[in-house]
Design a binder for these strands. Sequence first.
DNA 1: GCCAACGTTGGC
DNA 2: GCCAACGTTGGC
Length: 151
Amino acid sequence: MKYWLMKSEPDVYGIEDLKRDRTTLWDGVRNYQARNFLRSMTPGDLVFFYHSNTTPLGIAGLMKVAEVNVDDPTQFDAKSNYYDSKATKESPRWQTVIVEYVETFPHILTLDTLRETFSPDDLWVVRQGNRLSVMPVPEEVAQKILKQAKG
DNA sequence: GCCAACGTTGGC
DNA sequence: GCCAACGTTGGC
């Protein structure tokens, strides 16, 4: 079982939306490094839900990978912002996962707090200028985050 | 709203 | 295959 972190803008889709929906297909990732991380996920992996472009910034809760290797339907949808004219049903480019709501943390673990606790090498989301929206989280770091979230 | 970081595109 | 131009992300 691995740990991950995925970003979303809560104005677009936040942890409250996931709580309501229970599961969601994580569409719209159009970065190859992020896609490759999505491809390497396994059912049962735990994913920290990071709220970006908002106040407060930080990890809002936890979700779980429910289904892997799902073709992102928006790549085929000419009306979608995420449409990819080079993708076909026969040879899709973008795979993603379906995630399931686990919990909302009692308090957001803010980016400032994360910066105080973790180095940019341990937790990539605290790297300056980091734009990757899907990233791995080392086991020890994940355990500390979970502990902090309860405290 | 600004702008630094940085991934992508396209001309050569 | 290089790299300048461009577009987007996301913190501030």
